[in-house]
Design a protein around this nucleic acid. Structure first.
Lengths: 184, 184
DNA sequence: ACTATTCTTTAGCGATCGTTCAAATATTAG
DNA sequence: CTAATATTTGAACGATCGCTAAAGAATAGT
């Protein structure tokens, strides 16, 4: 008798590299506008391989979302300076006006299936929870964390609609200032 | 000789009613996901009539955008109380989680043609300009107007991703409070 | 009644959508 | 070398996409 999982051909392409290509396309273009053919081309594979690796376009999108969170979101220890660091990261000059895949997906939400919607909104609430933890012990920690998380969202939207880095930084600076945080 | 514009069959449907139907679909679903067939059905017309009245899906979307601004945006006289009134309007309980067509379109921007992109971002800057006018003479008018306009954007995004009315109102209240405005 | 003009309907265009399937290819165990 | 398993390619599936052309229906001047 033969071993079931050991006797076989292995994947020719790297799954994470393929997911990175998917992240790039979904991030730039959005879920609806991105076609499976585009994904296959960017991944350097054929349709059959695509559906063997991911199961559907939606499932691929869910995996891409996870990959995005894992690769693109800053890993910071909670604390007041983590918030300003977050704002510095999202207002960097090199981000190219793509915004944030999570925020973009939140807007595209009605076109996604329910588990994906839930994950997206949960991730957004996760950012707010992180900010709340960063402000733990301070006055109006919850209220300020909500506003700061909301400001992050708006900065991503405005960045995507072509706002200048300078304007994004002014918004970030004002939000930090009014909530009693330093820009640096 | 016959008069050119007077001798003809007149339109069977109302253009503004058709545009309202388009606004509803584009607002709920987004540009890419909304099909011309859906638009026709919602308008109660056939494809031929659609392309006779609007010229393309993109052109219809542009008209719908204008109609949206005209019908859905509050018409307020500039002043500090106009800002809180704006926030009250966008956090009303009856808005149904559709967000704002302009904000949604800003996120969908890369999938739209250039003139539409420009109009969308110009409208967003228009809100900020209005808020600046509302705060004229106050301290940090520009900086606060930018942050408040950004907060409006984020409230629309969060509303679309399922945030509760209570949370949206807390964010609005905090932004107003920190910029020296009253909620009421 | 006749003609000119514009709208409406209807059917269908070529292209692309997400997805599936069979055959070919590669990999490993016996 | 053969059998077994997994992945690959490449071609298609039916459905839908945005859009158009032709014919019928309505309106107004002659």
């Amino acid at each position: 008798m033969l071993h079931p999982t050991l006797v076989a051909r292995s994947r020719d392409f790297d799954l994470d590299e393929a997911l990175d290509a998917a992240v790039d396309l979904f991030w730039r273009q959005g879920y609806a506008v991105t076609s499976v053919r585009q994904l296959c081309e960017a991944m350097g594979i054929q349709a059959g391989s695509f559906y063997a690796a991911f199961e559907s376009k939606e499932a691929c999108f869910r995996r891409a979302l996870q990959r995005y969170v894992q690769v693109q979101l800053p890993a910071l220890a909670p604390g007041p300076e983590a918030i300003s660091a977050w704002f510095r990261a999202i207002t960097a000059a090199s981000r190219g006006g793509k915004g944030c895949l999570l925020v973009n997906s939140a807007v595209e939400s009605p076109g996604l299936d329910e588990p994906t919607q839930i994950e997206v909104s949960a991730r957004l609430r996760g950012l707010e929870a992180f900010f709340t933890a960063c402000l733990h012990g301070r006055e109006s920690a919850k209220a300020n964390a909500e506003l700061l998380a909301a400001t992050v969202v708006s900065i991503h939207v405005l960045a995507r609609s072509g706002a200048s880095t300078a304007k994004l930084r002014r918004i970030a600076a004002r939000a930090l200032e009014l909530t009693g945080l330093d820009v640096r």
